[in-house]
Structures are given as structure tokens and as C-alpha cells.
Design a protein around this nucleic acid. Sequence first.
DNA 1: CAGAATTTGTGTTGCGCACCTCAAAAATTG
DNA 2: CAATTTTTGAGGTGCGCAACACAAATTCTG
Lengths: 349, 349
Amino acid sequence: MTEGATQPVTRATLEDVARAAGVSLATVDRVVNRREGVRAKTVARVEAAVAKLGYRADLAAARLARGQTFRFAFVLPTGSNSFMTNLTEQVARTAGWLAGHRGFIDIHHVDVFDPDVLAGALENLSPAYQGVAVIALDHPRVRAAIDELVARGVAVVTLVSDAPSSSRVHYVGIDNPAAGRTAATLMGRFLAGREGTVAVIAGSLSLRDHTERQFGFHQILSSEYANLSALPVIEGRDDSDRTRDLTAALLARHADLRGIYCCGAGNRGIADALEASGRAREVVWITHELTEHTRRFLVRGTLDAVINQDAGHEARSAARVLLAHCSGEPISPDQERIRIDIFLRDNLP
Amino acid sequence: MTEGATQPVTRATLEDVARAAGVSLATVDRVVNRREGVRAKTVARVEAAVAKLGYRADLAAARLARGQTFRFAFVLPTGSNSFMTNLTEQVARTAGWLAGHRGFIDIHHVDVFDPDVLAGALENLSPAYQGVAVIALDHPRVRAAIDELVARGVAVVTLVSDAPSSSRVHYVGIDNPAAGRTAATLMGRFLAGREGTVAVIAGSLSLRDHTERQFGFHQILSSEYANLSALPVIEGRDDSDRTRDLTAALLARHADLRGIYCCGAGNRGIADALEASGRAREVVWITHELTEHTRRFLVRGTLDAVINQDAGHEARSAARVLLAHCSGEPISPDQERIRIDIFLRDNLP
DNA sequence: CAGAATTTGTGTTGCGCACCTCAAAAATTG
DNA sequence: CAATTTTTGAGGTGCGCAACACAAATTCTG
């Protein structure tokens, strides 16, 4: 049954619409771009013609005619862990793509973990930017800086870590409490009824994303897996050496340690300690972000699951959202939703 | 440290390049579009200027000037399960997006499960199409039909189910053996050492994707989980009623049934049988494709995990790949890779 | 019904590029 | 060195639309 809504081979243009509606090009332009000074009756006539011909503006021509260019700033952390390095690279790639669409991205590296430094960077951003993507800190000064940018008419999206109470137009990142809950379910099910303790290692509890993850993790673990009890959260500060020592101490102190959930970075330290202890196989280890390191640990079997956010998707999504916002186009929420990826050894990309 | 590669506010145009290279516009055009008749020395001069100015063609302007439009056919199954319905809807949405980029999509519904019908549909496709996306069947006649299309200069991508030995330019879909392995690992780990049998239910073994999934599943189950033994594969023909009866029979016959892996559709039948038996909680059930139904079963706890492929992503990716192929632009493999999503109750979108 | 206000039409320009023609210049050949 | 070939330049056109200016037609007001 080779049926199908066969469409015209050649698109309808504004001129076709004008002819069909019996009005001039200028009037059609007024209607489709929602300008003032057209009678309701005429508007209806034009819209009917648009619907009848299935007219859709040629985006290429519209962009060209409008001739605007866009400048966006991406505010990313200074030299940091593998995930952030990867994110930076993905943003750079996205910049290459955007350049073909009259958009320019500048990458600004700042110490995003210091609220004053981050807020200062946002405040001092060149007024040339129509959009800003920032790995936010949920802190009053940062919120204020974001709000001021927005007040100035700049589109701001938060990236990876949100500042929900600010007036940013969009958050590009995963649902972190849900990610924590997902980790807890995997932990609980992989341990399948065994009794013991579970350690939770965070990078820093001042980062909203880490806090939210461990919140979600504890929520599910305590309500659904009574056989497991969580140890107090440890701050590894995303540092491998420090994390290794902390993990080694945990393993030594708790003979009944059954699982480790790391909601930040510093995974190389965990792997070292775990492998040195000889308990790598029996302890279930779940962490975040797929990097060359975590991939290796996963393949080797030391690491059991990785909860991931796709940095490439995030970079592209941020750029798309900023572009759409600045040019008044709609976004499709479906496409811009960042998924919580679960990677096991078997579904590695 | 508000550093950053600050770029020019205004893009370099072809004219800028011409001026910088000390040649005419026509020569620059010849170089960037790789036309004949330019001395190697001049080519180098122009390319140096391009690099120096960071020139990138304005895609909007280029598309406009080229003025070509594209027609693609999407060959999808006739009225089928939830996944296919969803896929159809996503393709329709993608068509809306493509229409803004001078591309048109016609959807053709055929019985893709019958090789002759499918091959016939492909053979009778209007020559107006520059690209075709098809849910393929790995069958000689279908392969031949695809090869003929390709020979005629039509870009063909396979969607969801591949025909690897054909000459299609791209496969848009997940790695099905890997998906099966992923399901097996989840099954094995959720069952954590318990002994018993595991049932595998496929839609039809003539579909390459189902076969590959159960192949991957068996591979891991037999090599890594000696405590579990797989029962012979059952064909549910993606039909809920039939699948319900088969599942009920399985449950009755095998008291030691610990898990069910369904690599096709018909999930409502499995849920019915499982819930009627009162063993829903103890039997681990893993299936494919997130639909309104599987979502419900997941939330309810009857279903333990869903392996998913994102239909929206697949539809958009197929369109992007066809468009890129037809207009000679490169694709970014990273963005077009369809991921194997794992959904638990906690990370539902 | 004249005058004012509103609505509509005509016309133009330019965005950046692809693609084309024809002539001029340069390099190569016999 | 002339004849030929190759390379380059100049210039134009049009893609579909946005944006604008100004004139004409229509409607509304007193």
C-alpha cells in the first residue's frame, strides 16, 4: 500500500500566499511576522491561504534576510576533571557547528566553585553577548548575577548544575535527584537482599547537583532497601588522591561495606583503593560520568554501573536553546531533555 | 579569569577571503567548492586566507543559493504496536521540522514483515525521492531492492532493523546484540545468584533485530550466569493475547521461572499473565521499548527494566543523515549514534 | 462629505552564496 | 615568437525573505 501524503515538490513561497489570499506581499509579511496594522478580516484571509498552501517560512532565507548574528558565552570551570574537559571539547565542537549558523561561542574558563569569582565573571561579561550558558552555583550572589543578565535582556541557560530560583530561561542538564534514585535502585537490586553498609562519596556538598544526587540516593535506599544502611557522606573534593585515601579507610573500617556510590569525580582514587583491597568484585560500585577512566573500570569489572549525562548533547542543546530563544523560534522540549543514561559493560557506546 | 577566544562580531564572507587572498570572488568560489581549473599555488593562497579569517560558509545563504529541495520517503509498518505508532508520530514531527529546511517527507505504510510486499514497495517508489528510510528486513529480495535504489543514486538508510549486507549508506538504530547483552546483565545481576530458569519471548525470529537481541542475551546469560538456564525461545508474534497465553503456560509449567526477557512487543499480555499468577514481584521481567504501557508496568513494579531506543532521536537522525548525504555535508557520528537506553522506575523521562 | 486616520499596495534593497558567461591575463607549447 | 591552452577576473542573476519607504485605497470621524 504505497500511500502517503504526497506533497508539492516545490515549496510555497510568500508570493504564492499573497496571490492565493489576494493581497500583497507586504501584507502577508505583516501577518506572518505579526506586525501591526492589518484588519482582522485580512489576517484571517492570509492565514487561511497559509494553511491551504501549507506555507512554512524557509528558515535559511529568513535567517539570511534577518542578517543578525549571535554571540554566546559559555562559562566553564578551569582545568578540571575528565567530564569537564570533555564538556569543554564538546562546546568547542558545537561552536564549529554554530559558526555555520551565524552564531559565535566564546568559552570563558573560571573557577565556578567560588561563588564570588563566578558571580564576578558573569557581571563582567561583555554586553555583546545575547546569550550565556553557565555551570551555575545555587548561591545568592550567583543568582543575582544571573538575574541581572536576564534583566539586561540576555538569555541565560544553566548547564549541568542549576540555579532553579534564578530567572534563567532554561536548565540544560539531568534531573539529579532522579539520577541519585536510579543509582540507589541499581545498588539495591545488584545487592539483592544482602545486608551491610553503603558508602556515599560526593565531590563537594556546596554543588547543587551532588547534593541532589545523594538526596535522591538516600531517599530510595532508606525507603526500599532496609537491608542496607548508608554511611555518612564523605567529601572527596573531586580529588583522586584524597578520594583514594578516604576509600581505603572506609574499606578498612567497614568489613560489611557492600557498596560505594560516588556522585562526583575522583573515580581513579576509588578504583585504586578498591583494587588494592581485593574486594573489587564483591563491592558494588556505582558512579557518575562516562570517561576514559570509568569506561576502563567498567570493562574491567571493578565498576558496576555508570550514570551518565551526555556532554555532547548538553553542549548542543544549550546552543540550540540559546539560538532559538534569541531568534524567537520555539524549542522542542522532547529533543532538549537531557536523559539519565545508565551504562553497563554491555551498552557502552 | 574571563579569558576566551574572542572572535570577530561579524563573520568573514567570501568577499573578505577574496580580498585577503588577493584573488577574485570567482576564484575563491572555485576553490571552496572544489571546482576545476585553479593552479595549486592559488588554491593554497586561498586556503590560507580561509584559515586565517576563519571563514565558514554561511549555511543559510548556501542552501538558499543552491535552491535544491529534497524529497524523502519513510517506509514504516502498517498499523502496528505502540512503538511503531510512536515512531510514525515522531517521523511526522520531523517532517514538520524538515519542511523549514527545504526537505519533504512522505510516509508510506506497508507490511514490512512480508519481504515481497516490502521489496515491492521499495521497487515502486517514485523516482522523485532522493532519499529513503526503511525498516528493513534482512532478506534477499529486500536487499536487492535496496541495492537497486542505491544504484539509482538514492540515499537509503535502514531504520530500527538493519540489512547489513545491503549497500545502504547508514543504519539508524541501536546495536541489537549489545541490547540483548545488556538485558542479560541486568537479569543476571537482579537475580544475583538465584538458581532457576529464564524465558525468552521474541516477536518473530524472522526480524533481524529480535534475533540479534536474543543472541546477545543468550551469549551473556550462558557465559556469565551459570545459575540461570534459558528456556527455548518462544514466538509471541508481537500479539498480546497470544503472548499472554504463552506466558501463563510458562508460569504454570516452570515453578522455578525466575525471569522473563521479551525482545519484542506484546507486553500487555505478559503483564496480565504475570499479575494473574501472583508472581509478578518475584519474577524479573525485562523488555524493550518504553510505551505508555511499559511505563505503567514499570511504575507498578511488575516490570523491572526497559531497554529502549528513542524513536524521536531515530526519526530526526534518519532525516539528518539523509539530508547531509544528499547535500554532501558531513555527519557527526557522535550525534547520530542511537543509544541503548535503560529505564528503571527512577529515571523515566 | 471633507478631512483625518487606518489599512493595504507597490517598490526597493540587501543578506551571502552558487552558478553562469564572457573576456582578459598568464602560462605553456610548437 | 605566435598559437594554443590554462587560469583568472569581472560581472551578472537569483534564491526567499525581512525591512523599510511611500503612495494609494479604504474606512472612520465630526
